[in-house]
Nucleic acid binder design. Sequence first.
DNA 1: CGCTTACTTGAGTCTGGTCAAACGGGGTGG
DNA 2: CCACCCCGTTTGACCAGACTCAAGTAAGCG
Lengths: 228, 228
Amino acid sequence: MFRPLSADELAFVSSFRKGELHAERGDTILMEGSRNPHLYTVLSGWAFRYKLLPDGRRQVVNFAMPGDLVGLQGTLLGEMQHSVEALSAMTLCVFERQELMELYRAHPDLGYDVTWIASREECILDENLLAVGRRTARERLAYLIGAIAERGADTGVFDRERLEIPITQQLLADALGLSLVHTNKTARRLAADGLLRWSERGCHILDLDALQAIAKWRAGPNTRRPFI
Amino acid sequence: MFRPLSADELAFVSSFRKGELHAERGDTILMEGSRNPHLYTVLSGWAFRYKLLPDGRRQVVNFAMPGDLVGLQGTLLGEMQHSVEALSAMTLCVFERQELMELYRAHPDLGYDVTWIASREECILDENLLAVGRRTARERLAYLIGAIAERGADTGVFDRERLEIPITQQLLADALGLSLVHTNKTARRLAADGLLRWSERGCHILDLDALQAIAKWRAGPNTRRPFI
DNA sequence: CGCTTACTTGAGTCTGGTCAAACGGGGTGG
DNA sequence: CCACCCCGTTTGACCAGACTCAAGTAAGCG
């Protein structure tokens, strides 16, 4: 699914990487307001990106899965404008901020790929904004669960055959701009309709197509994507 | 305010550009689902980016002002996932899609700048998502008007001394995930509090600081930005 | 002068929020 | 081994912010 790298590119990326970071569920990888000198690529596991209001209201802005870059904004714009927290055990590939420019110079194609990844993130954010701004609670939940499942299955975080998503309802609520209570009631209703089930480990999807139909959302074409 | 280009870069960008596009208020510059072979930089005027649900619900996702790229997603991902419409008379600089890769190869620094711009857009989207998901109607309106004013003043679209923003309440509503009626009532209340005034041409800001305080939002540091 | 576009306002409704309490499983320390 | 606690889920009652419907105003324009 990922674009294959040339030997040359591979060698450069290898020299570029500064090590691996392992994180556990709940670990904060990046903190809003900090100036972390690193940039990461997710290798395995997943995380969520969020912002806080001074009084504690939280908005989950997106999720990060294998192939996604974490901390690019901080690298380019200075200070982090959001935080990132692991949702599972995960491994990340660590790069140095300063060397990003080096990558652009040495391998323009890889630079292009970085932009590609940023652009895709932007596209997902647009979609999230549409959901939070204009969909009903039921549609939102169907959308988010459907979209997470799709991305997770593509990147190998979840098993496509047996879609089980370990996530709390609080997190779904914060990603959808809903209250926990209302999220629960809505989720319960989707379960009653036979579209999903809640187990101890999270949400088990029974009918992905029906969810996406409710959300009026289709996954984009699954084109080959770059990986750095 | 923009990063100065070297003579070399300037020459390349000049050869890269394919002409200028002039648009009038209301013109559609890009259409969701289309495959436009062009990429644009806004030179003057402003526009908005939006997405539609099949039943017509509309979400304005962001605004585009001088220095912003329009159509980058389409260039990298294929088909446009959103539409763009002019909010004023505007001029755009036209580039060919295919040549973007050429730019990366010939001038890595400019490639880096493209990523920088995409990253900033992402940052604004995060902020919008936070607003739509977690702020009250009053906070949202204060945020959006404050943020538009800030960006508009920075890029010379509006006069910083006499902040007058020609925008309809319907558009504000669609950007904030609110109904037109509720937006109007909220706007009216802000006006009653002496923070702004509605004239025939749009919204006239009287107290930008107070608006930003209500929104619990501060404009980021106004760093030098790239321009392509 | 009629048409259109945008803004206003009021009345009534409803989706989704808040508050409060209880449940259930897993871990842990006595 | 059990009591307790913590975390996440669940439910009910009540409230309110925001939506819909409807109608009216005001300005700009052909």
